[in-house]
Every structure is written in C-alpha cells, then in structure tokens.
Amino acid sequence: MELQSIWFFLWGLLWAVFFMTDGFDFGIGTLYPFLGKTDQDKRMMINSIGPLWDGNEVWLLTAGGVTFAAFPKVYAVMFSSLYTPLMLILFALIFRGVAFEFRGKINSEGWKKLWDTFIFLGSFLPALLFGVAFANIFQGIPFDDKGIYHGNTLKLLNPYGLLGGILFVLLFLQHGANWLNIRTTGELRQRAIAVSQKIWLALVPVAVIFLIASYFATDLYANYFKTPALFLVIFVTVAALLATRFFIAGQHFFKAWFASAITIVGATFFGIIGLFPRLFPSSMDAAYSLTAFNASSSPLTLKIMLGVVLVFIPLVIIYQAWSYYFFRHPVSREDLDLEDAY
C-alpha cells in the first residue's frame, strides 16, 4: 500500500477513535440535565467521566494535528471552509471543559445551574455539529480549485447534514448511557439503563434511514460496489448496533459499551471508506477534490510521522486503556468526597 493510502486510513482511524472516546463524554453531557435529578446524580455523572474526558479530547487535537502534518492542504481548506461550525465546536468544548472544573468550586444553586447549562451545550453542540460537518463532507463542500469556499454556513443544515447530526447525537447518547450503566449506582443507574434502551429504539431507525439516504445524497457506495467485500464493514457495524441491545438486556454492560464503541468506529469508517481516496471532496467539480494523493505532505514527512504514530499511538492506547480499567468501578461516595472531584 502506498504511504498516502496508509495515512488516509490512519487519518480516518484517529477521527473514529476521537468519536469513540469523547463520544461517550458528549453523550453523558447531553443526558446530564435529563438523567441528573439531584446534585448527587449530576456529580456522579460528571465524575464518571472525570478522569477520562481530558485524555479523550486529545484525540481531537491529534486528529487535527495529523491532518495538518500529513495533509496540510486538507487542513487548510477544510478548516477555513468550515470556519463558523468549527469555531462553534471549539467554543462549546471550551465551556464544557471549564464547566467541569468550575461547577463545584462555589456552593450556590445559581452558579451550579449556570455551569450545568454549559455542560449540556458543550456536549450536545459538538456532537450535533460534528455529525452535520461530516455528513456535509460526505456530500461534498463547495470550494474551487484554489481552495476558496463558496458556500454558506446555513446551507450545512440541509436535510442530509441534519440527519448526520441527529445520527451522531444518538450514537453518542447510546454510548454515554452505556458508560453510565457501568459507572453509576442506585436510581440513577436504573434510569440510565431504561434510557439506554429507549435511545436504541430511536437510533436503529435513524441509522437505517441514514444508510439509505447516503445512497441518494452521496456517492459513498461507489467504493463498496467496486469492492463488495467492504460491505462487511457495514454488516459488522449493524451487528454491533444490534448486539448493543442484547447486551443491555442481558446486563452485560461492559460488552454493551464495547458494542456501541464498535458501532461508532464502524459508522465513521462507513463514511471514510466511501470517501477514499478523497479527504475533502468538492461539490463544485470532482477535479477540485482534495485526495490522499494530491494533498499530502512530502514522502519524508509522511515517513517520519508514520514512525512517530506507530510508536506513540499504541503507547497512548495502552496507558489510556489502563486508565479506563483503573476507573472501571462505579463512582463511590469516597470518589465524590475527593477534594478535587468535580
């Protein structure tokens, strides 16, 4: 395989892992006002991701950094074209991050309510906007041969774009609820389990509609028809989605969480495979599209970065997996009493 193709795959993988990890943080933040009835519930919810969300968010920086390093032209055109939605996402993430830290620092109702709102918005908006952005990328973005954007931010909210947004929100809600099933206790956990089953009922039809809509709104399936073996990715994703439901019903909550993780990675790869070799397709003229071959860095940079990524990303996965394992138990009274707990 050429260096550029390997990098295309890694690029997709980093985004997929970001959605898989920070995805459940977004889901929990979105469920937060609905499932958190008492202050204790709320604290249990945010402390369930307390030790992890920051490390999860770094996958976004790495996905962005790798886009910059391996495909600088994509980095330039993609982020300048999607200026407004990206800024909204960044502001939302800023608020989410400080909200976790600030919320418990002053003991007043109004203060907590303020940051509660930001936890919700800071989780829901990125989930929605990433979905909208990626669905629009699947359809193609109006930019010319010089990489100048000719679109309108509001047009990103077209039906397929919105469908992508809703799909992402639901995927993350499912994933987040599955994590709550693992790390919370008592009534909150009962509510989380019930909600995780309801979300699934909404997620399945939206996923099916999205798969069908993609056939009409995008040309993602072209690669699949060329190499039918690739349909396996869709089958695995759908199987993982179905398995989620059975694992929840069987009270196998870790397995359910793994299943929703695979669903998210699979859903991302459904699009990434369909895009190949394009990273950022132009809707004005296919010839303007930025691909792994016309937008990549020099072979030397790609080689050095490949070395870096192959050494360090597995290391990251090992110590992050260890920290997940370390914090696998339900959040306890003692955890909430820690001085710097959220």
Binding site: T62, G65, F68, M305, V308, F312
Partner: peptide, 10 residues
C-alpha cells in the same frame, strides 16, 4: 504540522 502532531501524540 508534524511538530504539532508530534506534540499531541507524544
């Protein structure tokens, strides 16, 4: 770009 990417991953 590679320096920023290395910063994040390392």
């Amino acid at each position: 770009g590679s320096l920023l990417a290395i910063e994040a991953s390392v």
